[in-house]
Nucleic acid binder design. Structure first.
Lengths: 228, 228
DNA sequence: TGAAACAAACCGACCGTCGGTCTATTTATA
DNA sequence: TATAAATAGACCGACGGTCGGTTTGTTTCA
């Protein structure tokens, strides 16, 4: 093979790029280190120069995803013109926008992430996202509690629980997606809408907010996402 | 090896026994099929006669755990003398009793389940437990909603979300356990107690129950569990 | 009654693949 | 030009899984 030397950052990012693509396409366990280095045009020696193990590569993929997610969310939360509830809603609104904008990739991601051979991938990403999200949400809740706009005596605990609920929504999104792909758009949209409303209600009740103050979803969102 | 023949049920249960023990002791990924068959005194041929893959063995371990869990819980839920809230509390009380009775095993389980090399094991067990628990809890919520003792318009969705919250408690139990093992009993107990109260509050609020109607924990529980 | 036929349970040598190691070589830089 | 980082790729051992064959128990029928 021709010997090419690149700056470490470029090289390792290329490896992470390839890994991310292959992991999502074929699953983590079905992707071999050889697949990755073939795709990245790199020798095995070079690979193990950058990552101590295949596991470390997975870690890197998850961490990078989490970092990018944080970079996207950070500005929303730092907006001083919003109170805590407004920030939460901004978070959901941003999440909706992203979901619709990147629907095709996201659908692909979901389908990959919930395959049984991808538990490791799923778990790592979930953990990494949680790690960056908890402080963010906890801070929001703390502010809200101080402002008096919501009730969350233990912001850390509440943040973890709220974020944990998010998992159930993800699971249902996956189910709805499958149903849609099976041809039942109406059923899928109804299911997704229903669950998202329940999710919103759960958050409102948990934070002792007035009914309707949290907008996780909006009319027609489920349909728009599924058809996008 | 001496050739011994046993009834299929006995044999496969022996294999599942060994697997369960080894998985929890050394982790799923660190346990090889050869380890299992050595421990079970069975040839490789015999093993693959019963299970199509190592993965299938994991599945069997998880399913059996879930079935046993269901058998334990079922009676509680069928008790007609309790209303839905009473049943929920009975569930938590039973869970507390079990936790303290089987504290050593449970601690071991927790320590194993949250190791990174055990995501597959964890995930499978969680999924299997969820699968048997959702109908149970959903039915309780449905009854409670009809009785008017609680508010859960969509019992299925509510059940999944409540059970999802349980994960966050498990995570904290693990953290508390680590803290206890590091020597900080007081800190660990305080943390665990606090989170369990928050968990209880979350459930009460979510189901629109009066404060204090759900008893996930009781005074001194965290300490008793950690020291048991 | 017993032996032939069959199916299920079991054995263990063997295979291909995969993550990871190692030595040698090249490239940048001080 | 000396040194360290980066790259190459042959190689290794372990592991999950396969396969041809053997044993054991049961059914069938002369």
């Amino acid at each position: 093979m021709v010997r090419t030397k690149k700056s470490p950052e470029v090289r390792s990012n290329e490896l992470i790029d390839c890994a991310e693509r292959l992991f999502f396409q074929h699953g983590y366990e079905n992707t071999t280190v050889n697949d990755v280095i073939r795709e990245a045009n790199v020798s095995k020696g070079a690979f193990y120069h950058y990552f101590v193990s295949k596991e470390a590569l997975l870690e890197a993929v998850a961490t990078r995803m989490a970092r990018r997610n944080l970079e996207e969310l950070q500005p929303l939360v730092e907006d001083p013109s919003l109170d805590a509830v407004g920030q939460l809603n901004a978070l959901f609104a941003g999440s909706r926008r992203t979901k619709i904008d990147m629907a095709p990739q996201l659908k692909n991601t979901f389908n990959a992430l919930f395959k049984p051979e991808n538990v490791a991938l799923y778990h790592r990403i979930d953990e990494a996202l949680l790690a960056v999200s908890i402080p963010l949400v906890a801070e929001m809740l703390r502010r809200g509690h101080e402002e008096g706009t919501l009730d969350a005596p233990d912001p850390e605990a509440a943040a973890l629980m709220l974020l944990q609920l998010r998992v159930s929504v993800a699971k249902v999104m996956y189910k709805a997606l499958q149903r849609y792909e099976a041809g039942d758009l109406d059923g899928a949209a109804a299911m997704l809408d229903g669950w998202m409303r329940t999710y919103g209600t759960a958050i409102e009740r948990f934070l002792k907010l007035p009914d309707g103050s949290i907008e996780v979803t909006e009319p027609g969102f489920a349909r728009a996402f599924l058809e996008a």
